[in-house]
Design a protein around this nucleic acid. Structure first.
Length: 305
DNA sequence: AACACCAGCAACCGCATGCTC
DNA sequence: AGAGCATGCGGTTGCTGGTGT
């Protein structure tokens, strides 16, 4: 039998453990995770320590903050481009971790599935036996959806220059982190290279001016290919009203093509001008998780596939 | 008030990748 | 070159608090 000291602890972290971990990082930096256990400081695996640091203890995290509308849009657009590359997407969202993004997306997917299911249920016009228990509890306004913000900042995973508690800001772009958030270097690994055959000319221009490459999503992608899943979604979303209402749904292709009208991904118009563009209330810019529940009353029963 | 359900979150696990010797 | 180790990433799971019935 091994002594308890050799047991690997799992589960929720205690404050003392956090403290030990923070001290270790202060001393040695965010590395050598395995040595923490080797030194007997914590009965946690190196992986666990790293995860705890990255997801919870790292400075400048937006812990406890819901995703802002901008962040949400960024995630939606980047997911459409990169797929489930959460770590990559997270680099565009200062203060967010890949886990955050992943969880956010997962929740969003569930909502989508639920809402689609609900809206597709023929007898679900107002009240039915199979109606969801709740459509949405709170409604962060999606009526005024600003355009996407440019990924002006990156966040160093190893960042430890400041440990000040970060207050939640309604938009990450508002978050004043001059000391810890540096302009994205946009190394090639962050840049989508020729993944999309064409993109918005305005964006191209701005991109040239600023030399900040950024994932582009064209409004008219010529080579859209639809996955079976997307095709099904398309079939189910035949109602044009749904397009307007839902905007960028989960199918990336749909998101690229159907959503939002104006430069779907126009990170610069707002950030360069310093003012946020306010979208028309009629064009839902993001996901429909925050619909008034009665919005579906206007939806015709979907045609059976 | 009690219960059931759900969403959000934290953490774990397995695999992939990169680095060192 | 390749084995071993450390780290990173994405998927999944379990817990908890909130909300509706």
């Amino acid at each position: 039998m091994e002594g308890k000291r050799d047991e690997i602890r799992k589960g929720p972290w205690k404050a003392e453990e956090d403290e030990v971990l923070i001290n270790h990082v202060k001393k040695y930096g965010a590395r050598d995770w395995s040595s923490i256990r080797a030194k007997g400081l914590l009965q946690r695996t190196g992986k666990s320590c790293r995860l705890r640091w990255v997801n919870k203890l790292r400075p400048n995290l937006k812990n406890g903050c819901k995703f802002s509308v901008e962040e949400e849009r960024v995630v939606i657009e980047l997911q459409a481009q990169f797929g489930n590359k959460w770590a990559k997407i997270a680099t565009y969202l200062p203060g967010r971790t890949d886990n955050d993004v992943k969880n956010f997306w997962s929740s969003r997917q569930k909502r989508l599935a639920r809402i689609l299911q609900t809206s597709a249920t023929p007898s679900s016009s107002s009240s039915s036996n199979s109606k969801p228990r709740k459509v949405k509890k709170e409604v962060p306004a999606f009526h005024d959806v600003p355009t996407l913000q440019a990924p002006m900042f990156s966040f160093s995973m190893e960042e430890e220059s400041s440990t000040k508690a970060q207050s939640c800001s309604s938009s990450y772009i508002d978050t004043p982190e001059p000391a810890s958030i540096v302009p994205l270097p946009f190394h090639s690994d962050l840049v989508v290279k020729n993944e999309l055959p064409c993109y918005d000319a305005n964006l191209a221009q701005v991109e040239t001016q600023t030399q900040i490459p950024f994932p582009q999503i064209s409004q008219h992608q010529p080579e859209l290919t639809f996955s079976p899943e997307s095709q099904e979604l398309l079939a189910r979303l035949e109602d044009p009203f749904l397009f307007n209402v839902f905007g960028a749904v989960d199918a990336p292709e749909l998101g690229a093509q159907l959503s939002l009208g104006p430069p779907l991904f126009d990170p610069f118009s707002s950030c360069l001008n310093g003012a946020r563009e306010v979208r028309s209330p009629t064009t839902r810019g993001t996901f429909f998780d925050d619909f008034p529940s009665d919005v579906f009353d206007n939806i015709e029963p979907l045609p059976s596939p």
